[in-house]
């Protein structure tokens, strides 16, 4: 019973704030709702027993990416933006795309409706560490290359003499 209550309340929190991200007119508010939605996803990880993922989600997404987005929103925002329409005129077509994707997704999801979790969830941090520094060492080291490339890219693009 507790599992269900936790799951449904986290679901409502995540989806409602995700809708606010997409539909809110004020970009500052929608970036704040982005942080709330990502925190809700972190709660869903916790309800799945993924302890390390929960911590990483809080550290990377909620306190990293969401804060970065808020900074950029405040850097680029203008007061006149609040009076402009934030949704383009092709939202009907987008709704149609979503509807078609929804039919497919829920057909797939319904096939899994008899799979329940077996056993208790156990902490996975130790196993993740073993996996990353054992079997998956090469992909794990390659991600550091991706991060380095992203870092250099960010510095390169934001330098003023490259802007012209």
């Amino acid at each position: 019973m507790l599992d269900q209550a936790v799951f449904y309340s986290l679901t409502i929190l995540t989806l409602a704030s995700a809708l606010a991200v997409v539909l809110h007119r004020n970009t500052v508010h929608s970036s704040l709702f982005l942080g709330l939605s990502l925190a809700g996803v972190a709660g869903l990880y916790a309800s799945l027993g993924a302890d390390f993922l929960f911590g990483a989600q809080i550290m990377v997404y909620v306190s990293g990416i969401a804060v970065l987005v808020i900074f950029v929103v405040m850097l680029l925002g203008r007061a006149s933006d609040l009076h402009l329409r934030q949704v383009n005129e092709r939202w009907m077509a987008a709704l149609l795309v979503c509807f078609v994707a929804a039919v497919g997704l829920f057909k797939v999801a319904r096939l899994q409706s008899n799979i329940v979790a077996t056993g208790a969830a156990h902490p996975g941090t130790h196993d993740i560490g073993r996996l990353f520094l054992g079997e998956w060492l090469l992909p794990f080291e390659l991600t550091s290359l991706i991060l380095l490339a992203a870092l250099l890219g960010a510095v390169f693009f934001t330098r003023t003499e490259n802007a012209q």
Binding site: T27, S31, V69, V72, D81, Q86, V87, W91
Partner: peptide, 8 residues
């Protein structure tokens, strides 16, 4: 698909 603002 629908946001006009690229941060969105």
């Amino acid at each position: 698909l629908t946001r006009r603002n690229i941060i969105g």
